[in-house]
Simulated assay, not measured.
Amino acid sequence: MAKDVGTKGVARADREQSILDAAVAEFGAQGYAHVSMDRIAARAGISKPLIYNYFGTKDGLYIACAHRAGAAIVEQVAAAQRGPHRGRAVASLQALFRVLEPRPLDWALLFDRTLPPTTDPYEAALLYRRKLAELGNAGVREALSEIGNHDDRDVSLVTQIWFSVVSATVGWWLEHPEESAESISQRSARILAAVAGGT
């Protein structure tokens, strides 16, 4: 647990993961601009110099959090999109909820609006936002092509709508922590089926 990070005998890799967990809890809830290393150290139950020793700077710590979060999310969503096309939207949401369940604030961290533009932390988050956008765009393009629609502007618009749906759904889920990944997956599937005119 995070409070044990500073104890002797804890493997460095485990200690690093615990620091990252504490940092995500702060960055995800408060936003990069409003978080201090003092707050992260206090949450982790360790000294601030130890965090600097491991990650160098606040920027370095955020970037490490972004890479851990982004790589896991992109990997799971990409895997879901390799399945059968029918139902792929639901499968992608299910994959997203599953990977976020242990650390739901990973999403808020990647889409943090307080990140200063053009900085290294901003670019780290942007890397994974773009990867997710590419996956979404490819999925939408394939879905529209199956019904004979090859209009690039339609693809662009529907992709933007899809990301709004995903962001709103994850945001709602973060406000309702009593909902499990399975529960929100089922809820999303029902709603998408209703919107699509399914049963």
Rank of each mutant, 00 (worst) to 15 (best):
P116H: 00
E16P: 06
L132T: 11
H34T: 08
V10M: 12
M37S: 05
D59R: 05
S183Q: 15
D14L: 12
I161L: 15
E75S: 15
N53G: 09
Q17K: 14
P117Q: 01
V5H: 01
M37W: 04
V155E: 00
G31D: 02
V166M: 06
L192Q: 03
E146V: 09
C65K: 06
R130T: 15
Q76K: 14
R82A: 13
G28S: 04
L61H: 10
W172M: 15
F55C: 10
V90C: 04
L157S: 08
G136Q: 06
Y122H: 14
G148Q: 06
E142M: 06
L115T: 11
Q30H: 14
G87H: 06
S92V: 12
V77A: 01
H150T: 14
G83K: 06
L105G: 05
Q17R: 15
R12V: 14
H176K: 13
V24P: 12
R86Y: 09
E134H: 08
P116K: 00
E175N: 08
L126C: 02
T119E: 02
L50Y: 08
Y128K: 02
G9K: 05
G9V: 03
V140T: 12
A89R: 11
W172D: 02
A193Y: 00
R12Y: 07
H34E: 08
T7I: 14
Y32N: 05
E146F: 07
V165P: 01
L132R: 02
G28E: 03
M1F: 11
S156A: 15
K3I: 10
V195P: 00
L110Q: 01
K8N: 10
A25S: 10
E75L: 13
Q76T: 10
P104V: 03
A79T: 14
L132A: 08
G31R: 06
I51E: 01
A124M: 11
H176F: 11
L105Y: 09
A13Y: 02
L157Y: 13
S156N: 07
V195Y: 04
L109A: 11
I46N: 04
V158A: 10
K8V: 15
A69L: 08
K58C: 12
L115V: 12
K131L: 15
R129T: 12
A89M: 13
A23G: 07
V195Q: 03
L93Y: 12
V165Q: 05
R103A: 13
